[in-house]
Design a protein around this nucleic acid. Structure first.
Lengths: 184, 184
DNA sequence: AAGTTCATGTAAGACGTTACATGATTTC
DNA sequence: GAAATCATGTAACGTCTTACATGAACTT
């Protein structure tokens, strides 16, 4: 698969970035759907350079601090485009440790289960509220209604998807808690 | 983390299973939220046995075929319960290759993007329909309305959650496709 | 008898996280 | 001057997938 490879090529599509910049992108909205640590990113940048998909120039930050600014090669652009247009099967499993626990709920008392689900609900509500805030900021920054050609369309896609995902989690948790609290 | 460890302990909570049985559970509804290949399961069973969380007896299938039937030890039950009641932070990243592509949508033409999203929509609709079918079967098999004490409550939880997840994906894809098809 | 399923294992390699390691720059 | 951030790398370890390997039992 080497999905990190494509994540890096994709991030470089708009211009040059350092490994540090790439690391930071994974801490922002993109991190909702993909991420990697710098210890994985730096070796991957080396590999992509060796393979000819990216290249770098050395820039100086301040007076002495060296950083490598990477850009896509033409071969890298082609590789990115081939991946972007490829239609993959949807994954059978999307791992979720909380849902694994939920499957084993028969090993908990009703009180323990309500406690676990209530904790999850609170955490999901908090995350939802953060995402709602980011979404509002994005919408307010637009001077036109969002459309395919908006420069922020990718940003809009990941934010709305993450938002819907969390809304859906919260609603499901609320519904299940209502069922669980019913007298048996 | 060693989540597979807990997945195995959890599956063994209701009685003895072979490694092969465990492999099959990951192909059913639980596989929506956790799975592992047999090549990962057999070594983990060995490790859990060495650690004293599970034990096995050798059973004979047919006349000669040996299989190992595993059960939880008391220590294993405690370990499972401790994990089940532990409240973890929610993960920052839930990886989704399609959403990674979505973030890079500015590198596609409108036609390519509509094509990619339409393909995803079709696949998600198909999966939704399968899940809806499994859900209907489960509901019809119940002789009482679902509740915390139903033996199938865990099954109900994973099925409803997977169903809502796919419904949510489909709705979002339809909404985005409508935006993308708008005249610029 | 052939094909599928049942059943268990190991080996190699890819992917991912935590920790180790270093040093410059900026902000308070 | 101290702390946080910028910046890049490696090492060790854990997780996960694909492939290799074998043989019994059941179904057609």
């Amino acid at each position: 698969m080497r999905i990190l490879k494509y994540a890096i090529l994709g991030l470089l599509r708009k211009g040059e970035l350092s490994g540090y910049d790439i690391t930071n992108y994974f801490k922002e909205e993109l991190g909702q759907f993909w991420s990697a640590k710098h210890s994985q990113i730096y070796p991957e940048l080396k590999k992509l350079t060796d393979e000819g998909f990216i290249e770098f120039r050395t820039a100086i930050q301040g007076t002495r601090l060296e950083k490598k600014m990477y850009t896509l090669t033409e071969s890298g652009e082609q590789e990115l485009h081939a991946w972007l247009t490829k239609k993959d099967p949807i994954p059978e499993t999307v791992k979720d440790e909380f849902m694994l626990k939920a499957y084993f709920i028969s090993s908990l008392t009703q009180e323990e289960a309500v406690d676990l689900f209530t904790d999850q609900l609170l955490k999901r509500q908090l995350k939802l509220s953060d995402l709602q805030h980011s979404y509002n900021e994005l919408i307010e920054s637009l001077d036109q209604p969002i459309s395919f050609s908006s420069p922020d369309f990718g940003h809009y896609l990941v934010l709305t998807k993450a938002l819907e995902r969390e809304k859906n989690y919260v609603t499901w948790l609320e519904d299940i808690l209502a069922v669980m609290k019913n007298q048996q």
